[in-house]
Structures are given as structure tokens and as C-alpha cells.
Computed example of a mutant assay.
Amino acid sequence: MPDLPASHRVIRKPETGGKVPVDRVVLGYDERFLRRKRLMTEAGAGFLVDLAETSSVSAGDCFELLDGRLVVVEAAAEPVLVVTGANLPRLAWHIGNRHTPCQIEPARLVIRDDHVLKGMLAGLGATVGHAMEPFTPEGGAYGHGRTMGHDHGFGAHDHLRGPVLTLPHALAGLHVQHQGFARVEDDPEAPDE
């Protein structure tokens, strides 16, 4: 099958305007985070995705080809852990505290297969099982897409600046910081109190 025209645009699923996709691509969670990549449709046609910026593409979104046709995205089945238990909000908190993508449903949580997290969750009383299914975790809190770690922008927390605690004089040279400890030498000319 001949190649399709390139795509420079993602059409989100509610915005397709009634157009019917001509083909589909099946992509795993990591593959749905892209900027420039050659993809193959289920029918065997290749096309280049060349977006202006790296984007997270969800199941149901479409790549709009230069000729206006659409190729729909389907989430591929991949190894996941299915988490159930009496206190899902508490379990979700522990997963989120580890900055781990999580698919949140009314009666279960779904995360990527990870033996360390499986052990932690079992230790918290969860029932954890293996499955092969599409993984579609929650996007970021600030819009469509993925959570991207713990960066709030330059200077948002000032993690490494200034003393954090007021300490007694005997410990005044010790500055406690978010990422570690640093010893600031006492001023030799400062009088003892």
C-alpha cells in the first residue's frame, strides 16, 4: 500500500466534525507521546507525524493528514496491574505520591506492570492482578496530556535557596534544604551569645 500524506495536526476526539477516519494506528502508552515519528496504519500504509511540539495523543484522537483525511488512534494492549481494594482513594494517593501514571476507574486503578509497586500496594492491603489491556491513565491537572514530573517552573519553590528553619544559635550555621543538607561555616568574627 502506498504511503499516506504527512500529518502536522492532532484532532481531539470530540472535534472531528463528523469526519470518518480512513484507517487507524494502534499505539502503546509510550508511543502515544510523540512529536515526529513514522507510523504504520493497520492497513499497512505509512505516514509521517510531524507536529509542532511533543504531544500526548489519546485513544480516539485523530491525526489529520495534509489532504484532510483522518487516521484514528487506538490504545494498544500492554502489561498492566489492576488494583482493587477497600480504600481506592488511599491506594491512588500512594501511587500518585510516586509520580506514577494511573488509570482511575470507579472500582479499580490500573498502572503499568511494576513489581516494586505491586509489592507496595499488596502491603497496603490491595488486591493486585496482572492483565493485558489498553493503558489510558489520567492526564495532567493543567490540561490535556501527561503529568511531566515535579517541575513547577523556575523559582516556583526555591528548593535550594535560603534557610528553611530558624534554628538555635548553636545550629545556626546549618541550613536545611529540600534536596539535602549544606553546612555554612560560622562567621569567625561573630561573637558567641
Rank of each mutant, 00 (worst) to 15 (best):
residue 1 M to E: 09
residue 2 P to C: 00
residue 7 S to Y: 15
residue 8 H to T: 00
residue 10 V to F: 02
residue 10 V to E: 00
residue 10 V to R: 01
residue 12 R to G: 11
residue 13 K to T: 15
residue 14 P to M: 05
residue 14 P to L: 09
residue 15 E to Y: 14
residue 16 T to A: 11
residue 16 T to H: 15
residue 17 G to S: 12
residue 17 G to H: 15
residue 19 K to C: 00
residue 20 V to W: 11
residue 20 V to M: 10
residue 22 V to G: 01
residue 24 R to V: 06
residue 25 V to S: 10
residue 25 V to I: 12
residue 26 V to N: 04
residue 28 G to Q: 03
residue 29 Y to R: 03
residue 30 D to F: 04
residue 31 E to C: 11
residue 33 F to V: 07
residue 33 F to S: 07
residue 34 L to I: 13
residue 35 R to H: 05
residue 37 K to M: 13
residue 45 A to R: 14
residue 45 A to D: 07
residue 46 G to E: 04
residue 49 V to N: 02
residue 51 L to Q: 09
residue 52 A to W: 13
residue 56 S to D: 15
residue 57 V to S: 01
residue 63 F to T: 03
residue 64 E to T: 03
residue 64 E to W: 10
residue 65 L to A: 02
residue 65 L to R: 01
residue 65 L to G: 00
residue 68 G to Q: 06
residue 68 G to F: 06
residue 69 R to T: 05
residue 71 V to I: 04
residue 74 E to R: 08
residue 75 A to I: 04
residue 77 A to G: 02
residue 78 E to M: 14
residue 79 P to S: 15
residue 79 P to F: 04
residue 83 V to Y: 07
residue 87 N to K: 02
residue 87 N to D: 12
residue 91 L to F: 08
residue 92 A to S: 05
residue 92 A to R: 15
residue 93 W to D: 13
residue 96 G to Y: 02
residue 96 G to P: 01
residue 97 N to F: 06
residue 100 T to F: 07
residue 103 Q to C: 08
residue 104 I to L: 05
residue 107 A to T: 14
residue 107 A to L: 13
residue 108 R to S: 01
residue 108 R to P: 03
residue 109 L to I: 06
residue 111 I to T: 05
residue 114 D to M: 07
residue 115 H to W: 10
residue 119 G to Q: 11
residue 120 M to V: 12
residue 121 L to P: 00
residue 122 A to R: 08
residue 122 A to C: 01
residue 125 G to D: 06
residue 125 G to W: 12
residue 125 G to I: 13
residue 127 T to C: 05
residue 127 T to I: 07
residue 129 G to N: 05
residue 130 H to D: 04
residue 132 M to C: 05
residue 133 E to L: 15
residue 135 F to S: 12
residue 136 T to C: 03
residue 136 T to Q: 14
residue 140 G to Y: 08
residue 140 G to D: 15
residue 140 G to F: 09
residue 141 A to T: 13
residue 144 H to Y: 13
residue 145 G to L: 03
residue 146 R to D: 06
residue 147 T to G: 01
residue 148 M to N: 07
residue 151 D to C: 09
residue 153 G to F: 00
residue 155 G to V: 01
residue 156 A to W: 14
residue 157 H to Y: 13
residue 158 D to N: 13
residue 158 D to Y: 12
residue 158 D to C: 12
residue 160 L to Q: 11
residue 161 R to T: 11
residue 162 G to N: 09
residue 163 P to T: 10
residue 164 V to W: 09
residue 165 L to W: 15
residue 167 L to E: 08
residue 167 L to I: 04
residue 171 L to K: 09
residue 171 L to S: 08
residue 174 L to I: 14
residue 177 Q to S: 14
residue 179 Q to D: 13
residue 179 Q to V: 07
residue 180 G to I: 03
residue 180 G to Y: 02
residue 182 A to Q: 07
residue 182 A to L: 09
residue 182 A to I: 12
residue 185 E to A: 15
residue 187 D to P: 00
residue 188 P to E: 11
residue 191 P to M: 02
residue 192 D to L: 08
residue 192 D to R: 11
